[in-house]
Amino acid sequence: DVEEQIRRLEEVLKKNQPVTWNGTTYTDPNEIKKVIEELRKSM
């Protein structure tokens, strides 16, 4: 579920933690925001 994935990513973003997405680890909050944007567009 895309909305659930977005929620999880936003939680990680709030905690300022790195997130691994599709085999890539993002540590930059701006990169994580881009991933969230892409997910929103795909909905």
Rank of each mutant, 00 (worst) to 15 (best):
K15N: 14
E3N: 09
M43L: 14
E11S: 06
E37G: 05
N22P: 05
I36Y: 02
T24L: 11
Y26N: 01
R40Y: 11
E38R: 10
R7M: 10
M43G: 08
E3F: 12
K41S: 10
T27H: 08
K41I: 09
D28C: 03
T20C: 15
P29N: 04
K15M: 13
I6L: 06
N30P: 03
M43N: 10
N30K: 11
D1T: 13
R8A: 13
R7D: 03
E10P: 00
T24Y: 06
K15R: 11
K33G: 07
Y26M: 11
M43K: 09
V12R: 13
E10A: 03
K33Y: 09
D1Y: 12
N30I: 12
V35R: 02
S42K: 12
N16S: 08
M43E: 05
V19F: 09
V12M: 15
I36A: 01
I32D: 00
P29T: 05
T25L: 13
V2N: 05
L13W: 05
V2K: 05
I36S: 00
M43R: 10
Q5R: 04
Q17F: 15
E37M: 09
I32V: 08
R40W: 06
D28W: 02
E3S: 10
L13M: 11
P29I: 06
W21C: 14
T20W: 15
D1H: 11
Q5H: 08
Q5A: 13
L39W: 03
V35Y: 03
V12G: 15
E31W: 02
D1L: 12
E31P: 02
T24S: 06
E31L: 07
V2I: 14
D1A: 11
E37A: 12
E31G: 03
L9I: 10
N22T: 02
K34D: 05
Y26Q: 01
R8K: 15
I36M: 04
E38S: 12
K34I: 08
E4R: 09
D1I: 10
K15S: 15
M43D: 03
N22I: 02
Q17D: 07
E37W: 03
R8D: 06
N16P: 05
E4F: 07
E11A: 07
E11V: 05
Y26A: 01
N22K: 05
I36N: 00
D1V: 10
E11R: 04
N30C: 11
E11Q: 06
T24F: 08
E10H: 04
K34S: 08
I36D: 00
V12F: 15
V35P: 00
R7F: 04
I32K: 00
R7Q: 09
E37S: 09
T27A: 06
K33E: 09
N30E: 15
K14W: 10
P29K: 05
S42I: 11
E4T: 10
K34T: 08
I32T: 02
I32P: 00
I6S: 01
E31D: 12
L9R: 00
G23Y: 01
R40H: 05
K15H: 12
D28L: 03
P18K: 14
D1F: 12
T27N: 08
L39H: 01
T25Y: 13
I32N: 00
E3D: 06
V35D: 01
V19R: 00
W21G: 08
W21R: 11
K33W: 09
K33Q: 13
E38A: 09
W21H: 15
N22A: 05
E3R: 10
T25R: 02
E4C: 10
S42V: 09
L13S: 05
D28K: 03
K14I: 10
D28F: 02
Q5E: 10
N16H: 09
P18Q: 10
Y26E: 01
R40C: 04
P29A: 09
V19I: 12
K41W: 05
E10Q: 06
Q17N: 05
R8N: 09
Q17L: 15
K14T: 12
K34R: 13
R8L: 15
P18S: 13
E37P: 00
Q5Y: 06
I32L: 09
V12T: 12
P18I: 11
E31S: 06
E37C: 08
Q17K: 07
V2L: 12
T27G: 04
T20G: 05
R8V: 14
R7V: 05
K41L: 12
V35M: 07
V35Q: 02
N30T: 11
T27M: 07
E4W: 06
I32M: 03
E11F: 02
N16A: 09
Q17M: 15
E4G: 10
R40T: 05
I36P: 00
L13A: 06
R7K: 10
W21M: 15
